[in-house]
Write a protein that binds this DNA or RNA. Sequence first.
DNA 1: TCGGACCGATTACACCCGTAGTCGTATCTC
DNA 2: GAGATACGACTACGGGTGTAATCGGTCCGA
Lengths: 123, 123
Amino acid sequence: MAPERISDAEHAVMEVLWQRAPLTATEVADALADAREWSLQTVKTLLSRLTNKGAVSYDQDGRRYLYSPILAREDYIGDESRRLVDRLFGGRAAPLIAHLAEQQKFTAEDLAEIERLIGELKS
Amino acid sequence: MAPERISDAEHAVMEVLWQRAPLTATEVADALADAREWSLQTVKTLLSRLTNKGAVSYDQDGRRYLYSPILAREDYIGDESRRLVDRLFGGRAAPLIAHLAEQQKFTAEDLAEIERLIGELKS
DNA sequence: TCGGACCGATTACACCCGTAGTCGTATCTC
DNA sequence: GAGATACGACTACGGGTGTAATCGGTCCGA
């Protein structure tokens, strides 16, 4: 299948569905109300585009739809992360980490966590 | 100023200019010939859009332009990395690393490198 | 039973993006 | 000095995106 790209706005909708599903369009819109000032219609358009892209499905419940994600969040963040690493760091992850490190993106807990991860990977 | 987003195609042009500058439009097109099958006109359009976005500047050399980056590569990859971390990992970098780790994106050298980085940061 | 209310579907529209073609002009060549 | 050439500027155009309004059908309340 063609890996249909998911836009920023669409991604916001996916995040809601990944958190809990199935949901009606209205419920999705409510969940987004804090973050984005979208009309219900806008959310419905995004749901419909996501459906066309094969990223969400729906079950009909009377005259409304209950939407659920098809695309797994794991897969999405995997693809996006890989894209970034490929585009900006020649496909190698270490330079990304070096970069994040220089930006002071790490808290003490982060460092401990990462050390633990590295330790695991080495064994 | 609004941080004008740089598109994928535009980014490819920036990479050339980051590698060496100043360059003429034709030189940029030549440098890209291997990677992308773009006509010279396409490259010129991209350079012009990047100029409008304030990401590159030019010096006039007779009747042609010598283009140079204004936006620093550091800043660009910083912004892009931060965008990704914010969008997908709630602004924390450790989960990104955990994710990359699970994808087996790290070679043995990477691991050594990262360990070294972490060691430095902890001190 | 009739007018809203509420659905999803369809349509709208301006802007960005990828990918160029064309135009007007300045320069080089003979 | 006239035609070819090379340059940047302007124009084009189909598809994606953000952001909705409108349409046609159905159900609910009075």
